[in-house]
Amino acid sequence: MGRVTERRRVIRIRDGAVSTRPDTLVAEEPLEIRLGGKPLAITMRTPGDDFALAAGFLVSEGVLASAGELANIVYCAGATDEGGSNSYNVVDVRLAEGVPVPDITLERNVYTTSSCGLCGKASLDAVRTTTRWPLDTSPETPVRIEPATLSALPDRLRSAQRVFERTGGLHAAALFTTDGELLDIREDVGRHNAVDKIVGRALQQGQLPLSSCVLMVSGRASFELVQKAVMAGIPVLAAVSAPSSLAVDLAVETGLTLVGFLRGASMNVYAGEHRLALSAAASTD
């Protein structure tokens, strides 16, 4: 199994002084995800929680929605060029008997980098119609969260990032209750992988849909992160940076509460403001 971190020699320059020293870097390795023995996707990820990553990926693709639909996930042996040892960089997902397997040979084989996520899937209507967990768009929804609770989440996310402390090179995704209690956190070189690991672990533990949870992510809120939240039934997605225009469109289309630029007591609410316990009417200026 690949390590989460690796050591490399660096030349350090500080105020004109030059020295050499070892530096701790986050590991990045390819993971090939197979479905029923057929290649489906390759993602660049930080090794660890690979089975959860694969399961979460298949939730976002609409293939899985419950633990009962998953038979097992295994590492494929002989995955090196020589075929003699296991690289632990290939996993095969087997669905439970009776669960339909999509015709992946006729659809698309996905190459996913650590920055782009599922760039090829950009249909707002497709996500809305394929999710097994439609979000409650009613203003009377029981999911409500205080802005002050949201404001505390970035610091709680940051303080729980153990590998980031050593490398400074990881994204993170964390699952919170609406009261701000940390339920789970995963780190990865790709923010979409961190979310897949969160969602996959929830599927493995029979916890989907995550309809009473808040997903907090480092970095920006891209289309694929909104997609993954919606497909897992998560009603609130918050990010420390900006969303994309397509992310906002998808949030509006599906009823997701989308919060960006969450920094201290400041935030922008781009969609789903009915879930926030606001003390005064929002200005339309």
Rank of each mutant, 00 (worst) to 15 (best):
Q205C: 06
P243A: 14
I73C: 00
P102M: 06
V248I: 15
Y270A: 10
S123K: 09
E253Y: 04
A65P: 00
L278I: 11
A96Q: 07
G260C: 05
G190F: 08
D155M: 06
E253V: 01
A77D: 14
A27C: 09
R132Q: 13
T24P: 03
E29S: 08
R191T: 12
G83D: 12
R7D: 06
P147V: 08
D249G: 12
A77W: 03
K121Y: 15
D49M: 11
A55V: 04
G37N: 05
P235K: 01
K228G: 13
Q207N: 07
S123M: 11
Q227L: 14
A277Y: 00
N109S: 02
N86L: 07
V91R: 04
V163A: 11
G180T: 00
R166M: 04
R144M: 06
V189S: 05
E107Q: 12
L262F: 10
I234H: 09
V259L: 08
V269P: 08
G260E: 10
L25A: 01
T284E: 14
V93M: 06
G233K: 07
A17K: 15
T46H: 03
P22W: 09
G264I: 07
L208D: 05
T137G: 12
R8Q: 10
R9S: 09
G36Q: 02
Y111V: 13
D23Y: 13
A232G: 08
N109P: 00
L237R: 07
V189C: 08
A152P: 02
S60Y: 01
R166W: 01
M1A: 11
S159N: 09
L258G: 06
G190I: 12
R220D: 07
V214S: 02
V252R: 14
L170W: 00
Q207P: 00
C119S: 06
T24S: 01
L276D: 06
I33F: 01
T5Y: 00
S85I: 10
H192K: 01
V252Q: 12
L150G: 04
V252W: 08
S241W: 06
L35H: 09
L237Y: 11
L31P: 01
A239T: 09
Q207L: 15
L208G: 06
V259A: 03
L203R: 12
R275P: 09
A79Q: 10
S159G: 00
S245I: 06
S138Y: 09
E181C: 00
